[in-house]
Write a protein that binds this DNA or RNA. Sequence first.
DNA 1: ATAATAACGATAATCATTACTAGTTAGGTG
DNA 2: CACCTAACTAGTAATGATTATCGTTATTAT
Lengths: 125, 125
Amino acid sequence: MHRRSKQKEAILRILRETTSHPTADWIYEQVRKEIPTVSLGTVYRNLKTMKEQGVILEMEFSGNLSRFDGNSDNHHHFRCDNCGRVFDIDEPVDNELDERVATSTGFLVSYHRLEFRGLCIDCQH
Amino acid sequence: MHRRSKQKEAILRILRETTSHPTADWIYEQVRKEIPTVSLGTVYRNLKTMKEQGVILEMEFSGNLSRFDGNSDNHHHFRCDNCGRVFDIDEPVDNELDERVATSTGFLVSYHRLEFRGLCIDCQH
DNA sequence: ATAATAACGATAATCATTACTAGTTAGGTG
DNA sequence: CACCTAACTAGTAATGATTATCGTTATTAT
């Protein structure tokens, strides 16, 4: 069963008050302004449980955990959530998409990455 | 000017001999079989320079470096390569895409992530 | 109010990656 | 061919994000 805590409530409120997509560390700094003794571990723990409950969304971004490919043309990938293997996907790359986003946002869009997730054939049983 | 080394050549050959998308550590283990004294740093260094030369492709995957979102419906993101900020993108989510990939691969596709990259308005000058 | 235990703060551990440093080697020049 | 120098190497320390541990605190059902 779940208990309430002012730390958890502060984290969720701060997250909902911003339109940016903050990192755990940024959230930690904000929470510290009202609860100076809060621990970074507490922020991570609560973000994790709220994510599991579907209350918030975690976006994993590029950073470390790289994988390498011997040929260097743009293509999409599928990653198996169970075994972690990565497969090439044959869907054509939609360059028009970049243009649409560019005109609607005013950003300079250089490319996009499309990553499928799920279970590969071996891991479906 | 560039010099050749058997380490660099082994790394590239191993990468081209596999259809999987190996991690740096996996490549390191393979190279060790023929050059037992090779260092993990050497593998990373060569992967980095080959990536910069466009010889190989680096795919950055989810891992750490997470960002969080207060609302939890599926939408796409744009990340600025200069300031690192993340913006929501209004393009509709194409669920049909998952089905197409599922039928063509036999995988169980639960979702996809679409990430645009480039420069936001503030960073174009 | 009390007892059970979820959640906490502090800190150590982990994991992928990068930085540093002293020694080695490729390859152009005399 | 011998030499020189900068590129490359192995080994190791450092970094940065995240997770685990552990003794303490505090929420909530009884």
